[in-house]
Measured scan of single mutants.
Amino acid sequence: VAMCDYCKLQKIIKETVRFSGVDKPFCSEVCKFLSA
């Protein structure tokens, strides 16, 4: 469980994407796409 980078809620992380050398955790595909 970690904080989703988009919705800022403590959730089970399903996706982690690396932006500019920094790992960004996301709880769902939706949050990942909305943050892009």
Rank of each mutant, 00 (worst) to 15 (best):
V1M: 14
V1A: 04
V1L: 01
V1H: 01
V1Q: 14
A2K: 11
A2Q: 11
A2S: 06
A2Y: 00
A2P: 02
M3V: 08
M3Q: 08
M3T: 13
M3A: 10
M3S: 09
M3L: 02
M3H: 05
M3E: 09
C4M: 08
C4V: 06
C4R: 05
C4P: 06
D5H: 12
D5W: 14
D5E: 08
D5M: 08
D5T: 09
D5A: 10
D5N: 05
D5G: 10
Y6A: 03
Y6M: 02
Y6L: 04
Y6W: 06
Y6E: 00
Y6V: 02
Y6P: 01
Y6T: 10
Y6C: 14
Y6S: 03
Y6H: 14
Y6K: 04
Y6G: 07
C7W: 00
C7M: 02
C7V: 00
C7P: 01
C7T: 03
C7K: 04
C7D: 01
K8Q: 12
K8E: 05
K8R: 07
K8H: 04
K8A: 01
K8C: 01
K8P: 02
K8I: 04
L9C: 14
L9H: 14
L9R: 14
L9Q: 14
Q10W: 04
Q10V: 12
Q10G: 07
K11A: 08
K11G: 08
K11V: 08
K11S: 04
K11F: 11
K11R: 06
I12R: 11
I12T: 11
I12N: 12
I12G: 12
I12A: 15
I12K: 13
I12S: 12
I13G: 11
I13H: 12
I13M: 12
I13W: 02
K14A: 05
K14C: 02
E15F: 09
E15W: 08
E15H: 13
E15G: 07
T16R: 10
T16D: 15
V17G: 11
V17Y: 03
V17N: 01
V17H: 06
V17A: 09
V17P: 06
R18E: 10
R18W: 04
R18K: 10
F19I: 15
F19K: 10
F19R: 11
F19H: 08
F19D: 15
F19A: 12
F19P: 06
F19W: 13
S20R: 10
S20V: 03
S20T: 08
S20M: 14
S20G: 13
G21Y: 09
G21C: 01
G21S: 03
G21P: 07
G21A: 04
G21T: 07
V22S: 08
V22R: 11
V22G: 10
D23M: 10
D23H: 10
D23R: 00
D23I: 02
D23V: 07
D23K: 02
D23C: 06
K24S: 02
K24C: 02
K24V: 14
K24H: 09
K24Y: 12
K24T: 07
P25V: 13
P25R: 10
P25D: 02
P25E: 03
P25L: 05
P25S: 11
P25F: 07
P25M: 15
F26G: 07
F26W: 02
F26R: 03
F26A: 09
F26V: 06
F26T: 03
F26M: 12
C27K: 02
C27T: 00
C27E: 06
S28Q: 03
S28P: 03
S28T: 03
S28K: 02
S28E: 02
S28V: 00
S28G: 03
S28L: 07
E29M: 11
E29P: 09
E29D: 15
E29Y: 06
V30K: 15
V30M: 15
V30P: 01
V30A: 12
V30H: 10
C31T: 00
C31W: 01
C31M: 08
C31S: 00
K32E: 05
K32N: 00
K32R: 06
K32A: 10
F33A: 14
F33S: 14
F33H: 09
F33G: 14
F33M: 15
L34H: 11
L34Q: 15
L34I: 10
L34V: 03
L34T: 08
S35M: 02
S35C: 09
S35P: 00
S35K: 12
A36V: 06
A36G: 10
A36M: 15
